[in-house]
């Protein structure tokens, strides 16, 4: 019987263009990617009023312990019970620093060592009709002194 040998065919995949294809894909990804960096001013909101009432007791704070910053509709700032007026960036910084130092002075007189490191509390209350930009501006300045002050953003109606 005559046995015929099968001829083996060579399998050959052309790979010369692989690099070109990959580079085309890279160019596509690079040109369509849109970098979206998130950056902003970080703060922590207070607990919801109903939760807070369950867990805390109310205490009365004096002006030396708490500064109330009220942003008016026209962007003016009312500090505690003073007349509202416009504050420049440098004036705002000075005001915050003065208040922090006032609290530090009070701490020096404190006899209880646990209370000596209490920070000045800044309560930011914004008029509902005021611009969001004004609130962020004040919070941005306050966050500079985050280590020496507590910031509370009021959401109370």
């Amino acid at each position: 019987m005559k046995v015929t040998r099968k001829r083996k065919r060579k399998a050959d995949i052309p790979t010369a263009s692989t690099g070109d294809i990959a580079f085309l894909l890279i160019v596509f990804f690079m040109s369509t990617t849109k970098f979206d960096v998130k950056e902003g001013v970080k703060v922590q909101l207070n607990k919801a009023v109903n939760q807070e009432q369950e867990q805390t007791t109310q205490i009365q704070l004096t002006e030396k312990e708490m500064t109330r910053l009220e942003i008016m509709e026209n962007g003016y700032l009312k500090v505690n019970d003073t007349e509202p007026r416009a504050f420049s960036d440098s004036e705002l910084d000075k005001l915050i620093l003065d208040k922090i130092e006032m609290r530090d002075d009070l701490n020096r007189l404190e006899t209880d060592p646990d209370l000596r490191s209490t920070k000045m509390l800044f309560l930011v209350k914004t008029n509902p009709e005021a611009k969001y930009n004004e609130m962020v501006r004040v919070v941005d300045h306050l966050v500079t002194y985050r280590d020496r002050a507590m910031i509370s953003i009021s959401t109370a109606i």
């Binding site: 979206d36 998130k38 930009n133 941005d140």
Partner: peptide, 12 residues
Amino acid sequence: PFASENVERVSR
């Protein structure tokens, strides 16, 4: 809004 300092990056 504008901010002068204290701008921190947030991980997406």
